[in-house]
Design a protein around this nucleic acid. Structure first.
Length: 212
DNA sequence: CACCAGGCAAGTA
DNA sequence: TACTTGCATGGT
């Protein structure tokens, strides 16, 4: 399995080249994007983030001071805006109540603690938590998403019933703990998914993974 | 028009 | 425990 994952990575990298993720300038912006992109096209998330950026609200605690109704209006293009406004405020409350309002203090926690702490926030599940741990804190934790599942399934590397933790373990048990590698690998899987492995695409037509 | 997008939590039985 | 449903905009 180690060989297959390594070969998979090589093929994707050769085809797509470096991805330079996460698309965001600061750890705070990464955390924001991680919540906003839940089941949502990234183009819509960008509109939401641009709204906040234009209003000069793309920082903590500026954003945390916004009433939830107003926050919801700014992030409206990202969809589920009422739900997501609440989820963001849950995250802001964690930073305020347990980290003296310092984002860096939260991100400085030991990796396992950081992940569990994020998971304790209502509205942050495994993918959102791991995205923050990897892309905002730079720790070697593999991010699993719908594309990862679909691609691995279609190439018979996992079974249909495979869950998040199981898939994550597949990568982490077979690859060295390497944040830049995990960063690039996940980003490449998303690029591959967008182009070749959408839900409605029954087979990966023209997929760079095809062949021996 | 239908379908989908870088999930998650709450409700039901 | 194991399904199902709600949340919502914007692009194809």
């Amino acid at each position: 399995m180690k060989e297959q994952l390594t070969r998979l990575y090589q093929r994707l990298y050769d085809h797509f080249g470096p991805q330079r993720w996460w698309p965001g300038d600061t750890p705070f912006e990464v955390m924001l994007g991680a919540v906003l992109t839940q089941n949502t096209n990234w183009a819509n998330v960008e509109k939401a983030i641009d709204n906040l950026k234009s209003a000069g609200l793309l920082s903590y605690p500026r954003l945390a001071e916004l009433p939830s109704g107003l926050l919801a209006e700014y992030i409206r293009p990202a969809g589920y805006y009422n739900i997501k406004a609440g989820r963001l405020q849950n995250l802001f409350a964690l930073i305020r109540d347990r980290y003296e309002g310092r984002v860096e203090a939260l991100l400085a926690e030991e990796t396992g603690v950081l992940r569990q702490t994020l998971l304790s926030v209502k509205g942050i599940g495994p993918e959102t938590a791991d995205s923050i741990v990897l892309y905002a804190a730079g720790r070697p934790v593999f991010v699993v998403d719908a594309y990862t599942y679909r691609i691995l399934l279609r190439h018979d590397l996992i079974c249909e019933e495979a869950g998040y933790d199981e898939i994550q373990e597949l990568f982490m048990a077979n690859l060295e703990p390497d944040a830049p590698l995990y960063n690039e690998f996940h980003a490449l899987l998303v690029s591959t998914g967008k182009e070749f492995c959408r839900k409605s695409t029954p087979r990966c037509q023209g997929c760079p993974l095809a062949g021996p």
